[in-house]
Design a protein around this nucleic acid. Structure first.
Lengths: 241, 241
DNA sequence: GCGACGGTTCGGCGCCCGCCGAAGTGTCCC
DNA sequence: GGGACACTTCGGCGGGCGCCGAACCGTCGC
């Protein structure tokens, strides 16, 4: 019976401090030990111990550079796991003080994105922008969710030629091409998987989006607003954190 | 930040005893408190406390009948979560003493099923039989895994008319129609989701499979062996626990 | 060199948690 | 009613864990 490994893994996330660290790292970037310590409100020595524990448990990987110790999640699978757990935990019990915004239709969701927060979730887009993009792709038939998400045939062509994301090149490795990832602030799904990651990368490379500060927040550039409108039919004011 | 709920949830599974309880309940059935206590090797009073904790945390639900307290996992989502975690935990670190059988091709996998163990995983088929069925459906084009698992159009017709599983009727609710579930003994995927559950139910209703003992083990009946051969091209000796 | 700084190790404190046995409550059956 | 039985409550024990502060070790920059 494999109860022992399960308990060991769960134990890593069973402490609020370590959980907060993993959630912070969901932005997919490497943080230094002291950044994390400050972020979760513990002293450096404690952080050092907890981080070592997370690394030893395989959830985090570290990279040492000079006097810095950079930490990030071990991989997309790890991020998906943490994300799933956090989502489940947030939807499940009397986890008090969560106002739970009701599901909205496409138009309203896009409209709300106008004043929107955009952010990353591990390696793909999340927040209202992420939800709006997902809604748009679904509405335009680029992806369908007949029995699980999938890229349609015309959708593949459109992504490759018009948007500039080579779908065929993504279809390697075992990571699913497109996966639904529930956002726990928006409570609505957005696109993860290789395609989600590629879209995010593309948006950054093309200068549509820019990181703001050290967190997961994104800012939509002027050119980005244009591109989002033309390609996805999403209108939003830029900036707005 | 939602670190607190995450930690609370993870904390429920962070104890080997509670983890073992949840793994046992992956068979999808309701166990009594004392059955679980005996199964994981603790005294009744301790079990009572742990079970209450799991129920309070939303992972388990209870049903009282007379002097018995029946417990089962709260739902398919809960089962999927536990399964995912257990899989991740088993594949991840130095969780020593796991020989890790290499992936096999279809023919070999089906051949191995000849001496096979069949069992349930929550509400669908697992073990070598479950893997063989999944392989068969993939090989015959009933389901495809282009960018996530999906039932093909001819597959839907075949399932409905030949096998007798009304796929259209399953497409309600938010649970995915078909989902891949990695078996941690076989290390190979089998079919979960509504379709996986329906197939399992159908196999039991049609008398192809029968529960053996109180665990998750299944026995293939004589008629079942015939049906599996004719419909799925799977040949196996019956019995063999 | 020296000081500033990021990170680590160590000792110690307090708390929580899982376990048990013993005693108690409720249900079923004779 | 009485006895078996499933389960629960309670007290108590022991161990582990998270936290901190203080001392220590490397690295960087002047």
């Amino acid at each position: 019976m494999s109860a022992q490994p399960l308990a060991r893994l769960a134990g890593l996330l069973a402490d609020p401090t370590r959980a907060a660290i993993c959630l912070a790292l969901l932005d997919g970037r490497a943080w230094t030990a002291s950044e994390l310590a400050h972020h979760v409100g513990i002293v450096a020595s404690t952080a050092s111990e907890q981080l070592s524990r997370l690394v030893a448990g395989g959830l985090l990987v570290e990279e040492r550079q000079g006097r810095h110790r950079y930490l990030r999640l071990a991989g997309p699978g790890t991020a998906a796991l943490v994300e799933d757990l956090a989502t489940f935990a947030a939807t499940q019990p009397g986890s008090a003080a969560t106002p739970a915004p009701a599901p909205r239709n496409l138009r309203e969701s896009v409209r709300r994105s106008a004043e929107a927060r955009a952010r990353t979730c591990y390696d793909h887009l999340a927040g209202r922008l992420g939800v709006a993009v997902a809604d748009s792709l679904l509405a335009r038939g680029v992806v369908s969710d007949e029995a699980g998400l999938a890229v349609t045939v015309p959708g593949r062509a459109w992504l490759t030629t018009t948007v500039g994301v080579d779908v065929e090149a993504l279809r390697h490795g075992r990571r699913p091409l497109v996966r639904s990832c529930l956002d726990w602030t928006e409570r609505r799904p957005h696109l993860a998987g290789v395609l989600g990651a590629a879209l995010c990368t593309h948006a950054m490379d093309a200068g549509w989006l820019r990181r703001v500060g050290t967190g997961r927040a994104l800012r939509v550039t002027t050119g980005g607003a244009e591109a989002l409108r033309d390609l996805f039919g999403i209108t939003l004011d830029q900036g707005a954190d």
